[in-house]
Simulated assay, not measured.
Amino acid sequence: MDHARLLPMLEIMRYAQGASRVDVELDGYLNYHFVTASVEASDAPRLMLEAGINATAMVDTPDGRRRPVISLRSSPWKAGHVTNPWHDEFDLDHGYVRYYGDHKPTKTGLPGVTAGNRALLDAWALHAASDPSARLQAPPLLIYRSVTVSRGGRNLVKGHVEFCGAAIIERLEHVVQRDPETGRSFPNLVLDVAVVDLADTGDALDMRWIDDRRNVKLDAERAARHAPMSWRRWIREGRAAIPRSRRRVTSSRVRSAEDQRPTPGSAEAALLQRLGLLHR
């Protein structure tokens, strides 16, 4: 593929389970299945968002088995219900998401018994690794949240998702939660993730990166050729690079002291001089 296939941050997409993978738009929104379809392998399985934690199957590559990607879906409209008694937290301007695992109040055993939590535990071992070669294998987390849209005079809570970025697992903890319906306590996982900066591609994710990670012919290093610069910095430097790799929208709005000074000779400059707040 010669050109980037970009998925912009905060893009709202139409997510329909059996939608075409060749139609760019669906019901006036970007078609999720178009933008996430592998160009290199048209027969590759779809990247589904049917569960909260959606881990692709492992693939065999020249340098070993790897999981291409894990897609996380948060459904705010379910928060506080018996099926989802926890509340995920989003602060995308500062590149932070707190996401709870998929252990339910009715599930027995430790948090790793569910498929989603097991995939997150496996990913954490690579995200927390001190060896760059291990981090190179780490599956990126692609984060989405369900959004309510108005169409045809109706508010639709299902069928649309907002892209919230690609992320590194910064911390993973075991927690005890309480089911608000029954009062029962149950164990779960909670992740603090760093949403990475996508400034080098205009605050959008180059989906060729995900295509490459799914390509069984590519080793991990070649599969990272279209990864964001912030992700590649983290691969090289590890945890110490996270503060510089994190998405920070507000930083671009902060002006230096010099930039905030009024134009010399202006009325604003004269006023500040009279107040003794501007050095001559």
Score class of each variant (00 low, 15 high):
G95W: 04
D2P: 15
R233A: 14
H94P: 12
V161K: 01
A19C: 03
M9P: 10
H3A: 15
E11A: 09
D192K: 01
R213A: 04
D43A: 05
Q273S: 00
R5G: 12
V157M: 12
R208H: 04
V195F: 01
K217E: 13
R214D: 02
A79R: 12
V69Q: 02
G28A: 07
G276T: 00
L72P: 08
P140L: 03
V97S: 13
V195C: 00
I242Q: 06
S251C: 09
P8D: 03
P243H: 13
S252Q: 04
S251T: 12
D102V: 00
P264K: 05
N54S: 02
I70Y: 04
S252Y: 08
H3D: 13
G153H: 04
D179S: 06
I168A: 02
V196R: 02
D219T: 00
P139R: 09
R154G: 11
V193Q: 04
R98D: 08
H174K: 04
S38F: 07
R222Y: 03
D93V: 13
W209E: 03
P8N: 10
N188Y: 02
H103P: 03
R213I: 09
V190Y: 03
V149M: 09
D206G: 09
R178N: 13
T61V: 03
G109E: 01
D2H: 11
I168R: 00
I169G: 06
N155P: 14
P76E: 04
N155G: 15
L26R: 10
S251I: 11
Q17V: 13
W234G: 08
C164A: 05
D219V: 02
D197S: 05
T263H: 12
V24P: 11
A138F: 00
F34I: 12
D219G: 00
L156D: 09
Y29V: 07
A267I: 12
F163K: 00
Y100V: 03
T56N: 09
D211Y: 05
S133T: 15
R73D: 03
A257G: 07
E268N: 06
Y100E: 01
V24G: 11
